[in-house]
Design a protein around this nucleic acid. Structure first.
Lengths: 157, 157
DNA sequence: ATATATATGAGAATGAGACTCAATAAGGAT
DNA sequence: ATCCTTATTGAGTCTCATTCTCATATATAT
């Protein structure tokens, strides 16, 4: 985490009369140190391994702050658990998700983005965000005829 | 509900060794009689009003069957509750949702659909379905500066 | 250093949806 | 029409992610 990001975070906190705490700092650091699409528990376990004393409630609360401040993106891939990703390290993209093994591939298409803006404006909408996921079978999973899943399946709880 | 749809449903049931029941018939009829994006409880209340004895568990189970058989589309608009819509009466479309009043506008863009197929194929994915939502403020809600919500907000539970 | 408002964690609460299982009901065979 | 096998139902239980509560701890302005 750079000094710049730290200042950025402190400013965001101050703006809402929020305080800097060791937990918040550790969560920000952990989040900025990963490029993955992680759920709350991934972050929780990562912090516990680093001996950071923190609870899930605090992680959820802090992730909300980080989302508002633009540090992370909160995404719903439809399996009942939110994923959080480092937004600073990445340019905007959407996701393609394998229904069998849960693999996530990022994609970005300028034309789709443009069309979205157009559709919103055509309908008098002020576009705030969008959610766009493609679901299917990745190459590897298409080859396994009727075998078991490989890892976390993207099925609904 | 037409005779054709009824036959279609019976065939789908038979194909999986499932049985026709008064509950399943009532649920199909109720779903085909609406063009809205309804959640389980909307359907539950609608059926109870018609004096149909049915439980939520049966509705969930039947909606899964109807989804597989192509009668309904199950959609996740990100507020933790699935919405179900009559798929027969409509051509494919995606949704634009007002973050303030919950209003839903349907849209469809051939170019976006085409790009999605292309992206999937470029990545070796076999595309099964997609989920595409635009979130923002509808025209009416942009005018209300900081007023209260109008109806069901699309905020996360 | 003090005062005061905010943050934290443990655990309880919430809520959508899936599961359990005994009782009930289809529907094919006779 | 009756039997018999198998699927279905509903009430209630369970799950699990996430949020809430509230007493205690801590950051920050002064």
């Amino acid at each position: 985490m750079t000094t710049k990001h730290l200042r950025q975070f402190k400013d965001a906190l101050k703006q809402d009369s929020l305080r800097m705490t060791s937990q918040r700092l550790a969560i920000l650091d952990d989040v900025l140190g990963s490029e993955e699409h992680r759920e709350c528990d991934d972050i929780y376990l990562s912090l516990r391994q680093k001996k950071v004393p923190v609870s899930r409630a605090t992680i959820y609360r802090t992730l909300d702050i980080l989302e508002k401040a633009g540090f992370v993106r909160k995404m719903d891939i439809g399996d009942g658990r939110f994923r959080y990703e480092n937004k600073l390290a990445q340019t905007h993209h959407d996701h393609m998700i394998c229904l069998k093994c849960g693999k996530i591939i990022e994609f970005m298409d300028r034309e789709i983005e443009r069309r979205q803006d157009q559709i919103a404006s055509d309908n008098g909408f002020h576009l705030v965000k969008h959610s766009h996921q493609l679901y299917g079978l990745c190459g590897a999973c298409q080859d396994l005829p009727a075998a078991e899943d490989q890892s976390a399946p993207a099925s609904k709880a």
